[in-house]
Design a protein around this nucleic acid. Structure first.
Lengths: 247, 247
DNA sequence: AAAATAATGTTAAAGTGAGTGAAAAATGTA
DNA sequence: TACATTTTTCACTCACTTTAACATTATTTT
C-alpha cells in the first residue's frame, strides 16, 4: 500500500478513458494499446500509462490492455461499479433537463427524488415519473432511500441554505449548478458547473487573438483599459487543460 | 508591454471576481478591499492581488478598489464590454434549458438562433421566441448576424461533424456539452461542460473516504481490484482546484 | 531458436504554476 | 508629523504536469 499522491487531473482523465473504453467494448474491440486509447482521449500515451501506474499494473507488455478488464478496473477505481443514488434539488429548466439526460443513467447514476421550494412546482409529475416534493421531505427521503449525492440547481440566493441542509442530511457530494460558491465542511465535496465562467474564458481568448494583430489606429477605438498595453494570450500549453474551481 | 504568461486559472478567477463585483455594485457598495472580495470568491487575498497585477494597477493603497471601476476593468479584460452573439446547435432538453438561463443574458450573451437536424424539431417556436431552424441555414445566419460563439448540445456522434461545420463558418469559440472530445484547428477554442466527469470525481472522493477507515474484514467484501491495496485520496490542497480538460 | 518488433512499466528530469509571506510604497487620519 | 491601513511587488517554496528514455516482457518472423 503506497501513500503516493494522486493528481486531480489523473482522476479526470480516468473518467475520460473509461468513457472511451465503454465505446470500444460496445464496438467489440478486445485489446487496446496505450497509444490508441491516448489518441482518443487526446493525451500523450506516456501520460496514460503513468495515470494507470498510480493504481497498479493492468496491461500486458508487448500487447496492450484488455478492454473489458481495464474498463472494469477503472470503473472500480472511480467507484462506479455500484449504483449511485442522487437527489435533485431545484425543478427548474436545468434540473428537468438533467433528469432526462441519458448519460447519467448510463453511468449508474439514478435520480431517486426531486425537490423544490416553489409551491407551484410541488406535486407536479415530471418526465420519468418523479414527482416534485416539498423540501420538508428531504431529510426523510435521503435517509430512507440511502441517497449519496445531490445535484443543486436552485437560484443562487438559496444555494448555501440548501447546501447546509444537504450536508446535515449526510450528503457527501454535491454537483452545484448555482453561480455562487458554497461553503461545506471537510469531508464533503463540491463540483461546480458554471457555464458563464467557461464562456468568459472563451471570450477572453477570442478578444486576445483579435487585438493581437491590431494596429494602433484600431486600438485607439478600444476602451481605455485596452489601450495601455496588450496582454499576452494564455500560453498554448495550458489550452489543453484549463482549471476550474471546485471547492 | 510585458510578455508575461497568464495562468488559465487567473482568467477563471477574474470571471468569479467580476460576478461578485456586480453584486457589490448592485448593493451600492463603492469600495472593496482585496480581503473582502477574496473572501467572497473563496481565494487568498494575495492571490487576488497577484491576479490583478498581471494586467496593471487598479487599486488605491490604503483604501482598496473602486467597485465600479474594477468591475469595468475586469469586464474589459475578459472582453465582456461588448455583446456576444451566440448560436445554439441542438434543441434538446439541455439546449432549451440554456436558452432560458438568465445568467447568459445578464453577462451579455445573446442567443441569436437555434438549429437542429431533427426534422420534427425544425420550425417549432421555443420559449423566448426563437424558431428552430434547419442546419442548412447555419452558414448564412452566422454571417448575416455576425455570430461569434456557438453552444453545442447535440448527440455525441454528431459532435465532430457539427464542430467542423461551425469552424468552417468562422466560429472561434465553442461551448461543448457533448461527451466527446472534438478536434478543432489552432485559433479556435473549445470549453467542455461534462457533468458525468464531475460526478465521477465526486464518487471517487467519496469511495476513497469510505474505504479509508475500513478494516480488513470489510475490505474482503469489496471486489478484487479493491482488495489489493487502498489508494490514497487526492490530496486536500488540490481540492480547491480541480482540473478539467478543455481543448 | 534467435532476432526483430511492439508495447508496457518505471524512473528521472525539467518545466510550470500556484500559493505564501514579507518588505516597501502610498494613502488617509488623528 | 506620526500612525494605521492596504496595495504593490518580490522572492521563495512546493506540488503538479509532462515528456523522454530505458528496461522489461510478449509476440511474430525468419
Amino acid at each position: 500500500m503506497r501513500k503516493e499522491k494522486i493528481p486531480a487531473a489523473t482522476i479526470i482523465r480516468l473518467s475520460v478513458y473509461q468513457r472511451y473504453l465503454k465505446r470500444l467494448l460496445a464496438k467489440g474491440v478486445k485489446v487496446v494499446s496505450s497509444s490508441e486509447l491516448a489518441y482518443e482521449a487526446n493525451v500523450n500515451p506516456a501520460q496514460l500509462r503513468k495515470d494507470l501506474s498510480y493504481f497498479g499494473r493492468f496491461g500486458v507488455r508487448g500487447v496492450g490492455y484488455d478492454v473489458a478488464s481495464l474498463l472494469n478496473t477503472i470503473s472500480g477505481i472511480l467507484g462506479l461499479l455500484d449504483e449511485w443514488r442522487v437527489v435533485l434539488v431545484g425543478a427548474g429548466p436545468i434540473g428537468q433537463a438533467l433528469l432526462r439526460h441519458p448519460q447519467f443513467s448510463r453511468q449508474g447514476y439514478v435520480f431517486e427524488a426531486v425537490f423544490d421550494f416553489d409551491p407551484t412546482h410541488i406535486g407536479r409529475e415530471l418526465e420519468g415519473g418523479l414527482v416534485v416534493q416539498d423540501l420538508r421531505n428531504l431529510p426523510r427521503v435521503i435517509q430512507e432511500k440511502d441517497i449519496q449525492l445531490a445535484v443543486l440547481a436552485v437560484p443562487s440566493e438559496k444555494a448555501q441554505e440548501i447546501a447546509d441542509l444537504l450536508v446535515d442530511c449526510g450528503i457527501k457530494g454535491i454537483l452545484n449548478f448555482c453561480t455562487t460558491r458554497i461553503r461545506v465542511p471537510r469531508g464533503v465535496s463540491v463540483q461546480y458547473v458554471d457555464f458563464t465562467i467557461l464562456l468568459d474564458t472563451l471570450t477572453y481568448k477570442i478578444s486576445q487573438s483579435n487585438t493581437e494583430g491590431m494596429d494602433e489606429h484600431v486600438k485607439a477605438g478600444k476602451p481605455k483599459w485596452a489601450r495601455e498595453h496588450s496582454w499576452p494570450v494564455v500560453q498554448s500549453n495550458v489550452q489543453k487543460q484549463g482549471v476550474t474551481l471546485t471547492s
